[in-house]
């Protein structure tokens, strides 16, 4: 039973990730896009662990998930620092 639940959860996470991409593509400001990317990263962390469970190889995928969580954090901090005090973040440049 657990296998079906994990598979269904993974598929649902992929669908949610694509829904989040709408916000990333069409967000009014740059910071909206950063939020979207952040949420996609959080979903991907869980998705990696679930993939590891499906392939019966959790011990390998957990390491990738740790690295991905840290990269996601550094990405949002770095990009935020970069766009701080920039006019482009308000108007999005068009």
């Amino acid at each position: 039973m657990m296998a079906y639940v994990v598979l269904g959860s993974a598929v649902a996470l992929v669908i949610f990730t694509f829904l989040c991409l709408f916000r990333v593509v069409g967000g009014p400001t740059v910071l909206d896009r950063i939020v979207g990317v952040n949420v996609v990263g959080a979903k991907t962390t869980v998705l990696l662990v679930l993939i590891g469970h499906i392939f019966d190889n959790v011990s390998m995928f957990v390491d990738i998930a740790i690295a991905y969580a840290m990269l996601n954090f550094i990405l949002s901090i770095g990009v935020t620092k970069f766009f701080l005090r920039r006019k482009i973040a308000r108007s999005d440049g068009d």
């Binding site: 400001t29 910071l31 950063i34 939020v35 952040n38 959080a42 962390t45 740790i66 969580a69 840290m70 996601n72 954090f73 949002s76 901090i77 935020t80 620092k81 766009f83 701080l84 005090r85 920039r86 006019k87 973040a89 308000r90």
Partner: peptide, 22 residues
């Protein structure tokens, strides 16, 4: 790690938005 990092990232983004003036 998520417990520490996620609120920090949220706070950083919010502060940037506040300074930029959204």
């Amino acid at each position: 790690f998520v417990y520490v990092a996620s609120p920090t990232a949220t706070h950083a983004i919010t502060k940037a938005a506040f300074i930029v003036g959204i």
